[in-house]
Each structure stands twice: as C-alpha cells, then as structure tokens.
Nucleic acid binder design. Structure first.
Lengths: 132, 132
DNA sequence: CAGCATCCAAAAGGATACTG
DNA sequence: CAGTATCCTTTTGGATGCTG
C-alpha cells in the first residue's frame, strides 16, 4: 500500500485499492456515491428518461446538480445523452451497457435499504433515547 | 407519491421511496453513500478495528471526519463502539449484525467497481478526447 | 490513544435569470 | 424544453491545539 511512492500511479489494475486516495477506484466510487449519483442511476433503470422527467422524479434535486451529475455520468460512460432534433429540443438519457451492469450490482444494496430502513430508524431512536 | 401531504410523514413502509426527499430511505441512503461511509463499512468487513487503524487504512480521511462518520454509523445501528478500560484507552469498532447484512449487500457493487474501473477510466479518456 | 473543539478554507449546492 | 451562467448560502472538511 505504501510501495513505490516515487513512481506516478500506474499499475492500478494490480495494486488498486479504494482505500488509496490516489486510486481511480476511489474516484469512481466517489462519483457513484455522490449525493445524486445512485438516485439518478436508479431512476434510469426504469428506462430512458428526459431531463424534466428526472427532475420531477428525483425530489429535491436542482437543475444545476441534475445537469452536473448527468454530465459526469455521461463522461464516465454510464449514461448516454441523445438529442432529438426537434423544437423544442427533446433529450433522452439512458443507461449504457456499462451503466446497466452497475445498476444490477447495486440492486442488492437498494433492496437491503428498503427492507432495513425501519431497523435503522429504530436504532436511531433507541440511540437518541439512551444518549440524551 | 404526492398523497396526503397534510399528515406528517408516517406510513413510509408502504409508500417509502428514496426519490422522495422526506422519506427515511433517502436519509439512510445519504448516510451510507456519504463520502466516507462505504469505505469505513468496507474496512470493517475485515474485522474489528481500532480508531487509529481505520485512520491509517483509509487514506485521506481526517480524524474529524472519521470520528463524525463513525458516530453516525453507530447511531444508525450499523457499527458498535467498545471501549476497553485500559490506559491508554483502546476503542474497537465492529459491524453489528445489521451492518454485516449491509456490507454483504454492498459486495456485488464493490466487486463491480473493481472489475470495471478500467472501463470507466477508458470512457473518460475517450470522452475528453472527443469533446475537447 | 482516541478523541473533541475551534477556526478557517474549499466545495457543494440552491435560487434566479437568461438562452438556443 | 433543456439547459447554462451567475451569485450567494450552506455544508463539508481539514489543520491545529487540547484533554482524559
């Protein structure tokens, strides 16, 4: 983990490690677990979506963050952006094959989340009661 | 999704939805996907860890954020904090059963991450070349 | 050792106004 | 419609110094 600090980061296929802040794995993790990343990816599992649809579906996101996060996901090759040449413009966002694979891998976590949020809220209440 | 806005949020078991910013599912999602949440949970899958061990293992985290995120995870019932009454103090952090279940559900995602970070970096390079 | 408190810098994020 | 640009606020986070 502390080996060869003198050479620029390169052979991350072998030595990669999300615990290392210089490793691309860490950067990608940060992108996906960014505040709106998982929610946008989850929304797109329902199929192709337009900007306004995503904006309406994901409660609380601003246009700025939606646009910003979508650009990042497109750059990462997880989402495609397709402009239909009509007026007014119509833009469709869709998962790539890579993005599909990612959402499949996220499914167990999302399932867990829905099934255990109740447990967590209970734990929070218990904790707040005990500590206060 | 927009039903009964006049009553305080309550029946989230049935209507829960991470896309709703008022839903506990969303809050829990934010906790887990907070900047250091996944990394700390992943680190603890290797077994019980002391504060300094976590600090050393997770590159780039400050003591403040480590302590802050650990407190949140303890409150959420995902991690236990045990103080051994010796001097100097020794504190062990460990996954609870709930936390274990969570990390199991995160495993497919982490596996995907390691296997596909290369693809994402390639997509980024392609994108940067094309757009610039 | 395991932290908390404080202060400060940086980044994230929201509101608004505007454009092709 | 689907954004971008700007400004501003809030949050995040790091560095430092201190304690039981």
């Amino acid at each position: 983990m502390t080996a060869s600090p003198q050479v620029p980061y390169r052979v991350w296929q072998d030595t990669s490690d999300a615990f290392n802040s210089d490793c691309p794995v860490r950067e990608v993790l940060d992108h996906i677990t960014s505040r709106w990343g998982v929610l946008i990816l989850a929304a797109l599992t329902r199929g192709s979506m337009r900007f306004a649809e995503l904006h309406k579906m994901i409660d609380g996101i601003s246009e700025k963050m939606l646009s910003q996060t979508l650009r990042m996901l497109v750059r990462d090759g997880l989402v495609t952006r397709t402009v239909e040449p009509v007026t007014p413009p119509r833009v469709r966002y869709e998962l790539t094959e890579l993005g599909e694979g990612l959402t499949v891998s996220l499914q167990p976590f999302l399932d867990w989340l829905y099934r255990h949020t109740a447990d967590i809220v209970m734990a929070q209440n218990r904790h707040d009661r005990d500590v206060t």
